[in-house]
Nucleic acid binder design. Sequence first.
DNA 1: GATGAATGAGCTTTCATTCAT
DNA 2: CATGAATGAAAGCTCATTCAT
Lengths: 190, 190, 190, 190
Amino acid sequence: MSGEARPLRADAQRNRTRVLEAAEAVLARDGLSASMRAIAQKAGVGLGTIYRHFPTQEDLYRAIVTDRTRRLAEEAHTLSAAEDPGAAFFAFFTRIVVNAARNKPMADILVGSGVDPKAAMAEGAPDMRSAIETLLVNAQKAGAVRQDLRMPELLALLAGACLVAERNQWSDELRDRALGILFDGLRPNH
Amino acid sequence: MSGEARPLRADAQRNRTRVLEAAEAVLARDGLSASMRAIAQKAGVGLGTIYRHFPTQEDLYRAIVTDRTRRLAEEAHTLSAAEDPGAAFFAFFTRIVVNAARNKPMADILVGSGVDPKAAMAEGAPDMRSAIETLLVNAQKAGAVRQDLRMPELLALLAGACLVAERNQWSDELRDRALGILFDGLRPNH
Amino acid sequence: MSGEARPLRADAQRNRTRVLEAAEAVLARDGLSASMRAIAQKAGVGLGTIYRHFPTQEDLYRAIVTDRTRRLAEEAHTLSAAEDPGAAFFAFFTRIVVNAARNKPMADILVGSGVDPKAAMAEGAPDMRSAIETLLVNAQKAGAVRQDLRMPELLALLAGACLVAERNQWSDELRDRALGILFDGLRPNH
Amino acid sequence: MSGEARPLRADAQRNRTRVLEAAEAVLARDGLSASMRAIAQKAGVGLGTIYRHFPTQEDLYRAIVTDRTRRLAEEAHTLSAAEDPGAAFFAFFTRIVVNAARNKPMADILVGSGVDPKAAMAEGAPDMRSAIETLLVNAQKAGAVRQDLRMPELLALLAGACLVAERNQWSDELRDRALGILFDGLRPNH
DNA sequence: GATGAATGAGCTTTCATTCAT
DNA sequence: CATGAATGAAAGCTCATTCAT
């Protein structure tokens, strides 16, 4: 499971985290024109420190996706043990979209930078997909989601919702209306 | 000062078009690393010529969105006169998504380049929105679309579909399944 | 014979020359730590201008060897038509060594930079070798040079003399004494 | 401050040696792009350890020349006691050239790095020069070398031979032919 | 008007060197 | 004493933009 080299010295680990956080912040602020230098400044470390942890700009960007995905995967796991499978399914869907909206330009930037977010995501959470699948199957068994919904289109719709959410800063109300319609499409009995 | 600019000499107009086409092609090929020089080469004109027509890289990129939007708006107008308003509505929706899928990296690039695609789009087709609204209202009158659907969420869902389509090269089948579910959500009687 | 692309605009040609001269000067001054930026400054052009003419640092360095070799090859040609073949042979040998001495660190730098000076030299004067060979054969026919001397060792000794000359700033007297001994080895009747 | 430094603890001495050997190896492999880090890795010590022994990169490089020179000086001393002074003289000359050929890129690198090899060499073997001079004088007394040969030009020719040997990987045969001619020039009776 | 040579700010990346662990 | 994480100056190179031809 581990694979990770050695546990990293305490201060090194702290720097790694600071760099990742700074990178997210600066990317969110400056978009694609974010520079490694700006990230270093924001993180309060030297340029070289970034490159020690992430030998390449791309490595850093990939790490961001990976990190974020890991956090989402954990939520998915948690939710898949919930009582009401239908509620869990829709809650997770909403949760992901909200999360995406909060980090507006991230995906664009990553895509724009040549990072393949799908690959990076896979790396970050090899079982993210299966976690979602569990949520789906349970919700279908409970009759909360239409039987003919398959993973591919679910992921597509999920991705789409995330992408708009990222771009347009939705008001809560608009988000609820749009998701409401989408969820209607996902429910059985049509 | 001169209101709407003068009509442009024939060859100048031709150059403008060539540059725009080249720009779309090069952006599609090289993504974010596309350079003005590459575009000039592809267009078969000098670098200076591009800058005569588009004083700034951003101006060029904005013009691309604007142009494309104008073409879509024309289609919307055409369709809004169709016989079956419901069919017209869904056809336009599909049409836009297909169109988006064909130009995969465009939006990413534009977003990545700091161009605000919403603004550019608005500029390109001031009445795009109203054209879509006409399609919507007609479809609702015909009972083909649920009454409580409003423009904001329609546009949001439309945008979302376009964005996924751009990223993941959908198979026709997957696209139909995903849009099918979305359309179910848009229909009345839930 | 031409092969050269188009003839280069007047100012472009002038800049190319200025860059080459500046590069020689700066390399001679700063050795391997010479930077492209310093060369640009010395040449009085922008950094980009260098890169327009020489897409890579290595290309620039190669061009220096090539250029210099071309000049030497011209001298060799001139001398090979001289009256006294023996004198011509030794004069050229001396000439090359003196020339090398004047440009102290050049070869080191070029070698140090990964440029293969032999290859670059070949490129600069494809017939340099044959020009030297003519000088040698003529001198041998005139009985001024030993018959068993072949090109490989001649070139080796020539190169060696150049290399020391480059390093140690020889006094004229020392140079004459060292070359005198070398020339004694090259003469017949031993 | 303390005159000649104290004798170094056993393990410290071992580390010093390891670093020097690693440095030679890495320089030979990577040429000018060799880095202190790579040397540390090869030597199996930490970066800091190198800096403890050689406060500066230049100090390390200088130590390499110094070391190597010391070894050569020892050989010169040994040979100066040999039976046949002429043979000893030419043997040492050949020995040095062969040695140089084996360490091809070393001198280039050192020169390229701003180390003055002459100074470093002087430091390494203050009596190297006198050892060679002894060989020369003895050979001249034995009539194996021309009387008018003086140290400066001898050293120049020696250096030249070494330099070509370093660059062009001579075949044994070519080396013998070139040295043969050079030696003819060094012999008396012309 | 069109061309493309020139410019130079700014980018990513490397690496000698320092110093906390 | 040894280690290697951190630093940041400096390098090679790109590319939007300007302007002489």
